[in-house]
């Protein structure tokens, strides 16, 4: 599904990704961990198409095509979804309106007609119930005045409506209370499917208790320095990142 090969990227003059490689197959769940500032969000933003991050080397292949040639909206329509670490507030743009426009943009790309307004609302309400979101959030501005946890749930709502092939969730578990974490994990588990892949960027084992990863990677200074199965996350929890760094350097 996704093949990241020796990816290098900078923002301004600062090199952030320094030869990162990662391979994600359909049906898999990958967790990416790593210290603050190591480049996790940068990787997520580059995959989503944020041109603040300049790709200076390497390749990203998605479903067999060069992903870096596509505009952000084309990537989204091809099934890539990024759950932002810091979802953007867009005052005055109705949440339901965006949700519907996003669903329709994808449907149009697939050669389908616009979603039926009634069906759309019904589906949105169902998904919101799973996420423990009050339906009134549909009528608010996109993330406008949402609490941290509400923003994260809203990201998952969008993901649930768009049913992406590849979901990259950048610290969607940060700032969630226990109930919200369970609800978000349930939302993510519902998306698990042999045709889909999920990449979870996280700092906490707790999320991985609910959404069991097939692979865990440690990103440090712009590179993946260690990969393993779910036990790697437990080991990290115990020994901290210093341990991986030492192992990587030594």
């Amino acid at each position: 599904m996704l093949e990241v090969i020796n990816l290098k990227s900078r923002v301004g003059d600062t090199e952030i990704l320094r030869g990162l490689s990662l391979s994600v197959n359909a049906g898999e769940v990958h967790a990416i961990m790593g210290p603050n500032g190591s480049g996790k969000s940068t990787l997520a933003q580059v995959i989503a198409g944020n041109d603040d991050y300049v790709v200076t080397g390497g390749e990203v292949i998605y479903k067999g095509n060069n992903l870096l040639d596509l505009k952000p909206e084309e990537r989204a329509r091809e099934g890539i979804f990024l759950g932002f670490q810091y979802p953007v507030e867009i005052p005055g743009v109705n949440n339901a309106y965006l949700l519907k426009a996003a669903v329709n943009a994808k449907r149009k790309h697939q050669g389908l007609g616009e979603v039926d307004a009634f069906e759309f609302l019904k589906l949105a309400r169902e998904k919101m119930a799973v996420l423990g979101m009050d339906p009134k959030f549909l009528n608010r501005g996109v993330n406008e005045g949402f609490s941290g946890g509400e923003k994260k749930r809203n990201e998952i709502l969008q993901m649930a409506m768009l049913e992406p092939s590849l979901a990259i969730l950048d610290e969607t578990d940060s700032g969630l209370d226990i109930d919200a974490l369970k609800a978000v994990a349930e939302g993510v588990n519902k998306l698990r499917h042999p045709d889909r892949a999920i990449v979870l960027v996280t700092h906490y084992q707790r999320m991985l208790d609910y959404v069991e990863p097939d692979f865990v990677h440690v990103l440090s200074e712009g590179k993946i320095v260690r990969s393993g199965d779910k036990t790697l996350a437990l080991e990290l929890e115990e020994k901290g990142y210093e341990w991986v760094r030492e192992a990587a350097n030594g």
């Binding site: 989503a48 198409g49 944020n50 505009k71 952000p72 909206e73 990537r75 989204a76 329509r77 979804f81 990024l82 932002f84 979802p87 953007v88 867009i90 743009v93 309106y97 965006l98 426009a101 996003a102 943009a105 994808k106 790309h109 969008q158 768009l162």
Partner: peptide, 18 residues
């Protein structure tokens, strides 16, 4: 905000209009 909307599948023109 423009980038956020585009990652949801809206093209630049549509995002700008919104």
């Amino acid at each position: 905000a423009l980038f956020y909307l585009r990652t949801r599948g809206l093209d630049r023109r549509q995002a700008t209009q919104i």
